[in-house]
Amino acid sequence: MDIFSAGRDFVRRDARLVERRLFATLFEDADAQGVVDALRGYQNADGGFGHGLEPDKRCPDSLPLDVEVAFDTLLAAGTQDETMIRRAADWLGQIANADGAVPLCGPAVEGYPRAEHISEWTYQPSINPTAGLVGRLQKFGIEHPWRDKAGAWCAAELAKGLPDEAHSLHESLEFLEHTDDVDFDRVRDWLPKVGYFRADASDPTDGVTPLQFAPTPDSFWRPLFTDAQLEGHLDRLVADQQADGGWAITWEPPGPAATLEYRGIVSVGALRTLKAYNRI
């Protein structure tokens, strides 16, 4: 069976409804409204998203990490629901600190199963996810008071220096691409010094690869990487497809259901990237 057909069968068999609706939008010309409708079940009355939309914690409470996954899903589908997004931005403004910064998670996760890495460090307001959330609102073209306040804080923090950890750097670049402070040479020179950046396609450990910074050929940060780098990681992505048609993950979610859910997310992402780079 070819790469796409095997991946499609995995998504149809094992992925969540929201990823199945996203797959249908990306590959089967389905109306993106189906993605919006699937996300509604994860949005709480306070406007935030929860209920394990990001599967590493099974907490129903609204968390910024789940808001980010909701925004990413809408962006991948090429759609938006302004009311849904504004409600989430209102909630971010309500839980932000005085500077506008928000944390990834919060103590509410402690009452529910969660991955080992979802711990106290995720309760601290930080560039990750604040910068990424601001950048995603900018991609939507949605202005909001929280976006302005948090964006000013992000700009001031990043003027002091880039993060030395790849996930935080990824979030920072989501923000920086919408500012006047775009310096490809600065970022390119910094990348080799960043923890959890997986420049080597043969490295099997958990981390952020060039394809996550540039998931499509028209990604803003694509010029950071050579053709050879990206081709190597595309080869690796093809090779990493599992016998069941999906892609594996390199960390331990809180249980088998969460593992399948996260595999659905990364498998749709892998197929999207391979299609964008004309590998399927």
Rank of each mutant, 00 (worst) to 15 (best):
M1D: 10
I3N: 00
F4E: 00
F4S: 00
A6D: 06
G7I: 12
V11Y: 05
R13D: 08
R13P: 01
R13E: 15
D14Q: 11
V18I: 14
V18D: 04
E19A: 08
R21L: 11
R21Y: 13
L22P: 00
F27N: 01
D29N: 12
A32I: 07
Q33D: 15
V35K: 05
V36W: 02
V36Q: 02
G41N: 10
G48T: 12
F49H: 05
G50K: 05
H51V: 14
H51T: 12
L53C: 02
C59A: 05
P60D: 05
P60H: 04
D61G: 13
D61A: 09
P64N: 06
V67I: 14
V69C: 04
D72A: 10
L74K: 02
A76E: 09
G78I: 13
G78M: 06
T79N: 03
Q80H: 10
Q80I: 09
E82D: 15
T83F: 09
R86K: 11
W91T: 02
L92I: 14
L92W: 13
G93A: 08
G93Y: 10
G93K: 06
I95F: 06
I95S: 00
A101D: 03
V102F: 07
P103H: 04
C105N: 11
C105S: 09
A108S: 12
V109R: 04
G111V: 14
Y112S: 02
R114K: 15
Y123K: 01
P125F: 12
P125K: 09
S126H: 13
S126R: 09
A131N: 02
A131Q: 03
G132A: 12
G132R: 03
L133E: 00
V134P: 04
Q138Y: 09
Q138C: 15
K139H: 10
F140T: 07
I142F: 09
I142V: 13
I142T: 02
K149Y: 01
A150L: 06
W153Y: 01
W153H: 01
C154P: 00
C154E: 04
C154D: 02
L158F: 05
L158V: 07
A159E: 07
A159H: 13
G161Q: 09
L162Y: 00
D164F: 13
H167C: 13
H167I: 06
L169K: 04
E171Y: 12
F175A: 00
L176A: 03
H178E: 08
H178Y: 08
T179E: 04
D181C: 14
D183N: 11
P192V: 09
Y196V: 05
F197M: 04
R198S: 08
R198V: 12
D200W: 10
D203M: 10
D203K: 13
F213W: 04
A214T: 05
P215N: 01
P215Q: 03
T216E: 15
S219M: 11
F220R: 05
P223H: 01
L224H: 03
A228Y: 06
L230D: 00
G232H: 07
V238T: 14
Q241T: 11
Q242W: 08
A248E: 14
I249C: 00
I249Q: 00
T250S: 12
W251E: 00
W251C: 00
P253W: 07
P253G: 03
P256H: 10
A257W: 09
A258R: 05
G264L: 15
G264P: 11
S267Y: 05
S267E: 03
T273A: 10
L274E: 01
K275A: 12
A276D: 01
R279T: 08
